[in-house]
Write a protein that binds this DNA or RNA. Structure first.
Lengths: 153, 153
DNA sequence: CATGAACCTCACGTTAACGTGAAACGCCGG
DNA sequence: CCGGCGTTTCACGTTAACGTGAGGTTCATG
């Protein structure tokens, strides 16, 4: 039984995300997420946040069609944002200029993603129509076939 | 200059579809479309319909994320529908039962595509929100940075 | 403490989807 | 009729994204 912590071993994490264990290890190797924490003996443990991030990666891959390399860049940018947020009110670290530039770059990434999403939605809309038309044409043919019942023997 | 026919050689066809010549030949080799017609000396000629079909293939690949193998199956089913339509009122060929079964199978394919399209649209919608939130959070951080102007030197 | 299931790390294999020449041939303007 | 650019067919190369053992370790349970 699971402990109350909500942490998962790789087997459960894999089946929850519908990925394989190999894929999870591969993504970790590529640096798509910070190496999962480990148990005493070396077994990986995935936090709920880890699982959520993995789902996000899956979406970027399957829905938006990004390569893992592209995803890595985006996530790195995302992590930079979180980093900046944490450090925002501390002195030290980066200068305001540097922070601003990073944030602007980050916004570019997000806006780019939004653009891609919108394009994809538009093309999906077109395809919906095309498919709907095809279904109707098929139904028409089926109806015609039905009306022919008893005709040519 | 192009002849009035609207037929294109592979170079033009490639740039119109934003694919490479190699990719067009590869798709033909895989049987994604009927071998393009040829000029006397063997140069391929693409009709407007060919180009349209190639665009359709691109959409299935890029927007819906199907593999070329899956696309081939779908298109084969599509072609079957057209075939059935042409033969519908002729005697000979397939029996009503066979035609009906093919049409039903075909409809399944189309309905399956529709399902995928809808799923993808839903997930895109979710991502839109996520991205929008991120953009707003970035803007917030940018604003905070702005307000800090002059503070810590 | 034994045992079986789940996990670990290599490391090589596989597949799809093309890329990249090489060598030859076709097309067309001068 | 010739020069150059576009096109042809092999055929091997490449890359991303994993799959698939092998051989060993760890965890939980009786």
């Amino acid at each position: 039984m699971e402990r109350g912590t909500g942490y998962l071993q790789i087997g459960e994490a894999a089946s929850r995300t519908s990925l394989t264990q190999r894929t999870l290890r591969y993504y970790e190797e590529l640096g798509l997420f910070r190496p999962a924490s480990r148990m005493e003996g070396g077994f990986r443990l995935y936090s709920p946040d880890d699982v959520e991030r993995i789902d996000y990666i899956k979406n970027l891959r399957d829905v938006l069609g990004f390569s893992l390399a592209e995803i890595k860049e985006m996530l790195a940018a995302e992590d930079t944002r979180a980093q900046i947020k944490r450090e925002l009110h501390q002195t030290g670290g980066l200068s305001r200029e540097e922070r601003r530039n990073q944030l602007l770059k980050l916004k570019e990434v997000a806006v780019g993603q939004m653009r891609i999403v919108n394009e994809k939605r538009a093309r999906l809309k077109d395809m919906r129509h095309g498919i709907q038309d095809r279904i109707e044409r098929i139904d028409t043919l089926l109806a015609e076939l039905g009306e022919m019942a008893g005709a040519t023997s």
